[in-house]
Write a protein that binds this DNA or RNA. Structure first.
Lengths: 196, 196
DNA sequence: CGCGACGTTGATTTGCCTCAACGATTGTGG
DNA sequence: CCACAATCGTTGAGGCAAATCAACGTCGCG
């Protein structure tokens, strides 16, 4: 299957596997297709899967006490998504994980991941590396949120990730960047005026 | 040395080492003592070390374009600190890493860490686990910053980490929580009034 | 065609910042 | 051991970035 091939290539960029190891790895994977707006994780239920996005776009978000949605992570092809705290500690989720558009995922379930790590310790290295990169990403985002204004965060986002705003409705982008939909809307219009 | 013993115990909680592996590990470590206000990392220089805090308290912070300090991470004994992006990619730092009080650190330099990973692959597992936890922590902090008010973040912080506010001056706490010193000060006083 | 999802716009409000001045505490050199 | 200067916290006045509220336009889809 092409979905499995793609993630095999992804893994091969970081560690070298024997054909047997590749086969074993493939055997623990599972492909899932989700429709736009469908949720694969909900608060209160333990999150079973770490999801590699083959195609599509997903997001994880929290519904606050005030009823507002706050997007924790926006993720597109060749990236990952899950309720991270729920997945690694196997505790009830606090987030929704939802398809922003029709998507195809490759899923790792938690128990198989543990078995895989025992059987093929090279995967420790694989997960170390991708976790380090994800952490470095979150460090950068944290700094942006602490030190930049709403407008600067928006500008930074569209220049760093020009593909995402094309796929994602603005109310989601706004909730990811930590501002209201209305404010993002006025920012975008001021922007057009300033540029001309 | 007791500093080395402590980190050996820390490691032993996650992986089992042979005596030879323990000795090799100890040989790549280095103990550093830093005085309050001393910086061990500065913008523009590549960050050489990952630091385990034996005793003391450290922080990493960014000086924004406006000249304001934004504390990325506050860390005390038995935790870690570094300019993460600088360390793992070995690129020039953007942060200061400073001692909040006199501290004793156990330092891993980047090159030795790579050699250690080759020589003793079990450490892949060790770093995977601590990186996962750190990432989970950042996910939670991200959500707090997106969904909570300044007052709620302060309340959460003092109940979760009651030890830290005792060690850390308020202007640092404020810059960690993403608010001004003055505002944190008024929050604390309103709080006293409301409780009585 | 009609409804729901999404984006926009303007008026008003507010959480938090900035600025400025003033105590309190700490530490340091003479 | 004291005097003086930093460093740190507090308080209040005023201001601004961004939220909220409300109403309306538009598009896509069942």
């Amino acid at each position: 299957m092409e979905e499995i091939d793609k993630i095999q290539n992804y893994v091969a960029r970081h560690i070298e596997l024997t054909p047997e190891e590749r086969d074993y790895f493939a055997s623990v994977l599972r492909v899932a297709k989700v429709k736009k707006k469908q949720c694969i994780v909900q608060p209160g239920f333990v999150c079973r899967y770490r999801n590699y996005i083959y195609t599509g776009a997903m997001r994880s978000y929290l519904v606050g006490n005030d009823g507002q949605e706050h997007t924790e992570l926006l993720s597109i092809d060749d990236w990952w998504i899950t309720d991270y705290n729920s997945y690694i500690y196997q505790q009830p989720a606090t987030l929704f994980v939802e398809a922003v558009e029709d998507s195809v995922l490759v899923q790792f379930d938690h128990q198989s991941e543990q078995l895989l790590l025992k059987a093929v310790p090279k995967f420790e290295r694989f997960f170390r590396i991708i976790t380090e990169r994800s952490l470095a990403f979150f460090h950068r985002r944290m700094l942006s949120n602490l030190s930049m204004t709403a407008e600067e965060r928006y500008e930074e986002f569209v220049t760093k990730y020009p593909l995402i705003p094309q796929k994602v409705p603005q109310y989601i982008l706004a909730s990811y960047l930590g501002m209201s939909t209305e404010y993002l809307s006025t920012l975008r219009n001021n922007r057009v005026i300033n540029k001309s």
